[in-house]
Amino acid sequence: MTEILILYYSQGGAVRELAQQIARGVESVPGAQARLRTVPKISANCEATEPEIPTSGAPYATLQDLEECAGLALGSPTRFGNMAAPMKYFLDGTSGLWLKGALIGKPAAVFTSSGSMHGGNEMTLMTMMIPLLHHGMLLMGLPYSEPQLGTTKTGGTPYGASHIGGAMDDQPLSDDEKKLCLALGKRLAHTALKLQ
């Protein structure tokens, strides 16, 4: 099976829901399988603040997960137009993979969630792409052949899947947001299979 790593950090649950929808899209492609992983919260001193093994949900990611994957979907909530600190902290520890060129040529996509329509979703997606470009990954977005990009009143961009959670992050994913996540997962899986 061709494994697609879906690596995310979620605080309120919306990014986790996006990750699960992308995983559904990946697994709808014959020969592809999703590997869901997350990262722990960190303190202001960049120390993990959660147990070594999560009590529920996806296991914590390792560098081996990145090295073994055939493709990557990277997700984080929006923090002032950038990814959340726990995800940045994890990515900052990938220089050994960069030195080996372990991610060169693998397809990658990004996804995010914010509390408001203009809360920095597109900027967060763009800034999450930067470390992936340094790793030599092949970035993918959502083409306008996906009709939901033209109809969505909530999340969804050509740069990647997104969600508008509302001020309290309690709005469920819209149908358009779900369909765009499924499309992104399918696109990533198809591309990884073609590249192998």
Rank of each mutant, 00 (worst) to 15 (best):
T2G: 00
T2Y: 00
I6R: 01
L7A: 04
Y8H: 07
S10M: 11
S10H: 08
Q11N: 10
G12F: 12
R16F: 00
A23E: 07
V29C: 12
P30F: 10
A32L: 13
A32M: 13
Q33I: 03
A34N: 11
T38L: 07
K41Q: 09
K41S: 09
I42R: 08
A44V: 09
A48C: 05
E50P: 05
E52K: 01
E52T: 03
I53Q: 10
S56C: 00
G57V: 06
P59Q: 05
Y60A: 00
A61N: 04
D65M: 02
D65N: 08
C69E: 12
C69G: 09
G71W: 04
G75A: 14
P77W: 08
T78N: 09
R79E: 00
F80A: 04
G81A: 02
A85C: 01
M87N: 01
K88G: 00
F90E: 02
L91R: 03
L97K: 12
W98T: 06
G101Y: 12
I104G: 02
K106D: 08
P107T: 15
A108E: 10
A109Q: 13
F111G: 10
T112Q: 13
T112K: 07
G115L: 08
M117G: 13
M117Y: 14
G119W: 08
G120L: 08
T124W: 03
L125R: 02
T127F: 07
M129K: 02
P131A: 06
H135V: 01
L138Q: 07
M140H: 06
G141L: 06
L142G: 03
Y144D: 10
S145P: 01
P147G: 14
Q148D: 15
G150C: 05
G155I: 03
P158C: 08
Y159S: 01
A167R: 15
M168Y: 03
D169L: 05
D169P: 02
P172W: 11
D176V: 00
L180G: 10
L182N: 10
L184I: 07
G185L: 04
K186M: 14
A189C: 13
T191D: 07
A192G: 13
